[in-house]
Design a protein around this nucleic acid. Structure first.
Lengths: 338, 338
DNA sequence: TTGTATGCGTTATCAT
DNA sequence: ATGATAACGCATACAA
């Protein structure tokens, strides 16, 4: 059916091993023979059987991605960055989504492990508190890169943004506009991203001597559009409603904008708003939403790069290497100083 | 290192072949022994080596996805549907993006072929006019499912929506509101989706005895936000500007809304608008955008199902089987009758 | 620099 | 119902 290195060997009067080595640009083979063999391979339409190569060499040239859900702007852009980078280096990309369920994350991790991926890129599910299911990877020397939603305690590569500082800046941005009562839509606190955004918010208030009012901190499980509306309703019913909102994601912030408009509350005059992520919608909604911009594509590229370097350099495992990428505050019409 | 069927064989005093058969629920093995073996396998932490199985059986339990770009709402939702369905059936999903380049599509198709995917799901790149690079798949009996952007001439499975009729309905929706001069943002005409949307638009006008004005048909290469703005500018400069716009996608329609608002033109009173896709932004922009809703997730599920059935039923190749899914017109505030 | 021989872990063919 | 053996296509240790 398909042509193998044995067919090439017969045709060119070489041994299969020479063919194999030439195809892999092995040093020991002469330049001319290497070129001849590669040329003949192309002519005869030789297609390497990657399964066989992987079985033998125990290296798959495939990297696994394990994320919550693909159809979210941040995640799909992240994957896009990974895929483009991987493709350039001749790697395949296997994806799987946990749909934010801890159990599915474990199942998928095991499947990816069985697929002998040469590296794993993970962004944790909303439910994940324990990350033991990734130990098998590092135990086998397979590099694991955590992106964005990362565990605190797991020793591995991590690609993140400075959530604390970004949140601090975002909150400060509201303060500089004159906001005195700033609410915060907070996400699940066991996840680094939401926990640190909350800390940044709190510290910005402290730093500017603004009293912290716990009624203004609304904990949301998934920061969904629906939850955003409920949270905003709750805030408006307060004796002293807020004059600013820092939301831990754009979805909930957009929901707030939509609801506040319905209630005839002026943005930013009555309530200024800033979100997090810079989803495409943020620049299109009216008024457009100030937010924190995440370098999602770049994070994807970098995550893959880290895996590639690990596998080529055979870096020592067990060391935590953390890459912190820059964010930027994007000021739009939901801010008073526009 | 990792435990194999040989280890199990020794431990349980069976031959490797019996172990293999039991693990695969082969009919010839007794119920009790099968159960015993499977139980022991789980206890000993046996993980099948899929590479080896694939090499031997020439079946990979992996399906390939080849799309333009992941980070678009329609595409990422499509992939999400594929992945969820595939995972449930124990299949892995390999993704690759063409970035809308013909050359990359060919390269990626070849890579996927080499990966011995057991099925391929494709949505063509914007540039693709020739689809010979998919013949190798069907020649080898690997099912190819084209989704959404499909070739006309290639004999294979196709999962699409009725673009013609959807466009007809959308245009008619504008006509029923009293629009007399309806513009159309048309996409690349060599792609079925945009070609048929244009036809539906034209026939709806004819059917209602509305004269066709070629100045109102704007051909856009990528239907991007930028192109949408330029197209809208052009329309406004016309001696007789339109009173309705049917855009072949939401992105360009959203751009039109944004620009028209800047120009103080009332939507829908002066110009009514309808888009295509029902991107998340459509319901959030002000005024919200009427549009045609695409069952992206379902299309993904169905595409995978078709591959699964093909591989189990060993259906005859060379037959074109086309699945046409329903769309629905979603009426929002960019329509006069809301 | 090139060739020989073996094994990666599994499934399939033939036999019992 | 179970076992022995070969083969899938490739890469590598060892030999030359």
């Amino acid at each position: 059916m398909s042509i193998t290195i044995y067919d090439l060997a017969k045709k060119l009067n070489y041994s299969p091993s020479t063919i194999s080595r030439a195809l892999n640009n092995h040093k020991s083979i002469g330049k001319k023979t290497t070129l001849n063999i590669q040329k003949a391979a192309k002519e005869m339409g030789y297609k390497p059987n990657t399964q066989a190569a992987s079985l033998r060499s125990k290296q798959s040239k495939t990297i696994g991605i394990l994320i919550s859900r693909i159809n979210r702007p941040f995640v799909s852009t992240l994957i896009s960055g990974i895929e483009d980078a991987a493709r350039k280096s001749g790697y395949n990309v296997l994806i799987s989504q946990s749909n934010d369920h801890y159990k599915d994350e474990i199942t998928n991790a095991n499947t990816l492990l069985q697929s002998r991926v040469s590296g794993l890129i993970v962004s944790l599910s909303m439910e994940t508190k324990n990350t033991d299911h990734f130990k098998e990877f590092t135990d086998q020397g397979i590099p694991v890169v955590f992106v964005d939603r990362v565990p605190l305690s797991f020793n591995s590569y991590k690609v993140i943004i400075d959530n604390y500082n970004s949140a601090f800046q975002a909150t400060q941005h509201l303060i500089e506009q004159g906001c005195k009562r700033i609410a915060h839509f907070a996400g699940s606190q066991h996840l680094n991203v939401y926990n640190q955004r909350r800390s940044g918010y709190l510290d910005a208030l402290k730093h500017h001597n603004i009293p912290i009012d716990k009624e203004l901190i609304i904990n949301l499980k998934s920061l969904s559009f629906e939850e955003g509306k409920i949270a905003t309703e709750k805030l408006l019913k307060l004796p002293l409603p807020p004059d600013g909102i820092f939301s831990a994601n754009d979805t909930a912030a957009l929901s707030a904008i939509t609801y506040l408009k319905e209630q005839q509350i002026r943005i930013p005059e009555d309530i200024a708003i800033i979100g997090f992520n810079d989803d495409p919608i943020a620049s299109i909604i009216e008024p457009s939403l100030s937010t924190v911009s995440h370098p999602a594509y770049k994070m994807g590229e970098l995550s893959f790069q880290r895996i590639l370097e690990h596998t080529t350099d055979r870096t020592i495992a067990g060391v935590s290497e953390i890459f912190v990428l820059d964010t930027s505050i994007i000021i739009r019409k939901s801010s008073k100083r526009y």
